[in-house]
């Protein structure tokens, strides 16, 4: 029996992620936890996030779970979701400029105002809904068709300094990085727990991933 810990730093509902992982991970115990020892003892860790980055970073600092996330990022298979992905970067434009964990070089930027799509229609922000993801080879995409749609809801996107880390791209007024990987770390801007079959497949792959 392996264990997947979902880091609980008080931001949003983690129930959906836990339920989705339980649905697809065989022989796995899922723990929603704010306890560093429990998180560090798990075989795999999910680092979720919703809401504003300012409050996220405050809570990560206040609870000490930012340091726990740092330690996990250097040691075991870790899946970062949405604001959890953004928090890995050096800084974000959100909330008047927010320093983040600095585990990945680069910044988090806001979608430009007044963007329009190929049909001339205005593109709304937040980028909300099902968009296609162009995958680059990685074990977590296994069994998921190229260009499958995943559910996004965000106004900010990541811009890694090292484009070699990008393993998924989506297009919204321009191509942006929506999935990145570095060794044991995999981070996505979309919500796999809300992305039906494709999302569940990704979570299933993560539950079996050895981080290589």
């Amino acid at each position: 029996m392996s264990t997947i810990a979902i880091i609980d730093y008080g931001m949003g509902n983690l129930h959906s992620i836990a339920k989705a992982v339980e649905r697809v991970a065989g022989n796995t115990r899922v723990r929603i936890s704010a306890d560093p020892a429990t998180i560090l003892a798990a075989d795999r860790v999910v680092f979720p996030g919703v809401g504003g980055i300012g409050h996220t970073m405050q809570e990560l600092a206040r609870t000490g779970l930012g340091d726990v996330a740092r330690e996990v990022a250097g040691s075991k298979p870790m899946l970062c979701i949405c604001v959890g992905m953004q928090a890995l970067f050096e800084r974000s434009e959100e909330n008047g400029g927010t320093p983040c964990l600095g585990l990945i070089g680069g910044a988090v930027r806001r979608f430009a105002e007044g963007m329009s799509g190929a049909d001339g229609q205005a593109l709304k922000v937040p980028h909300m809904g099902w968009n296609q993801v162009r995958q680059q080879e990685h074990p977590l995409w296994e069994g998921i068709a190229q260009d499958s749609r995943f559910y996004f809801v965000h106004s900010y996107y990541t811009q890694p300094a090292d484009s070699a880390l990008v393993v998924g791209r989506a297009d919204y007024g321009g191509v942006f990085c929506c999935a990145l990987a570095r060794e044991n770390l995999f981070a996505v801007q979309f919500h796999p727990e809300k992305s039906q079959h494709a999302g569940l497949a990704l979570l299933g792959n993560f539950s079996r991933w050895d981080g290589g």
Partner: peptide, 8 residues
């Protein structure tokens, strides 16, 4: 690859 319109 545009964003899909949603049916709710």
């Amino acid at each position: 690859m545009p964003l899909a319109k949603r049916i709710i």
